[in-house]
Design a protein around this nucleic acid. Sequence first.
DNA 1: ATCCTACAATAGACAAAGTCCAAATCAAGC
DNA 2: GCTTGATTTGGACTTTGTCTATTGTAGGAT
Lengths: 139, 139
Amino acid sequence: MSDLLERLRGRGWRMTAQRRVVAEVLDGDHVHLTADEVHARAVSKLPEISRATVYNTLGEMVTLGEVIEVATDGRAKRYDPNAHRPHQHLVCGRCGAIRDVHPAGDPLADLPDTERFGFTISNVEVTYRGVCPSCATTA
Amino acid sequence: MSDLLERLRGRGWRMTAQRRVVAEVLDGDHVHLTADEVHARAVSKLPEISRATVYNTLGEMVTLGEVIEVATDGRAKRYDPNAHRPHQHLVCGRCGAIRDVHPAGDPLADLPDTERFGFTISNVEVTYRGVCPSCATTA
DNA sequence: ATCCTACAATAGACAAAGTCCAAATCAAGC
DNA sequence: GCTTGATTTGGACTTTGTCTATTGTAGGAT
């Protein structure tokens, strides 16, 4: 289960109770928590953990490339532990629900050289926006 | 030149000095200012304009569909006046520069039904990330 | 041209999300 | 079990954005 924790340990990451709890809370599929949500859940397992530590830890996991930061709504950033399976996101504009999706095709190939302005492109983020089934029925 | 202003006027938008200034500041190609940047520029044309008014005005322009809100970095939202020419964004991870780009193909068509989870999808946002030429030379 | 009135602008308090720092604590190698 | 450098902590601070009560004004009516 806890792949994330294993990966981090395997990189010689110094292990502390706080880091373990953050990794446990964040691990899983279709998980896209904000820093505050991570903190709230972490507190229930380790009451004295501070907000600063949660922010630090999430930032380190992002730097290590084990977690991806997604900005789906211009509010709080969300953290996606599924960094090793390339995927995109499908977001409900009403309730904010997020699903991981796997489109066919390669969006990078769709961008002609003339449209690259000399940039060295390293990745592409695709966000599909719409309304989820349960919001759709609630008019 | 000021297409944005024209479009707004044409919709019966009540015109005030403040709204005119915001529209003028925001108009153009490859423009992606934050609300505070818009405010700063607006102040230089109309010193007594307030931050709240800039936020209100930008929000209204978004609601009217004349301006698009883009969240490229999880920090401040940026405002893109180019709402009537469908396009995507190319972002430099170092300096934050943003260019409008026009990829070939339709990313929506790339998402199979089985990956739509019953959502009604209304639009797709593609963000290419990389390093711009001038940041690349500055090692 | 002037008057009305609903809509718009303002200042400033407030809130949410995140960063920074100096001091205290602790994991892990010896 | 020490030592030490990495980690955690709490709280102040910053940035970004929202809300509200009050004042101002655009534009139609007269």
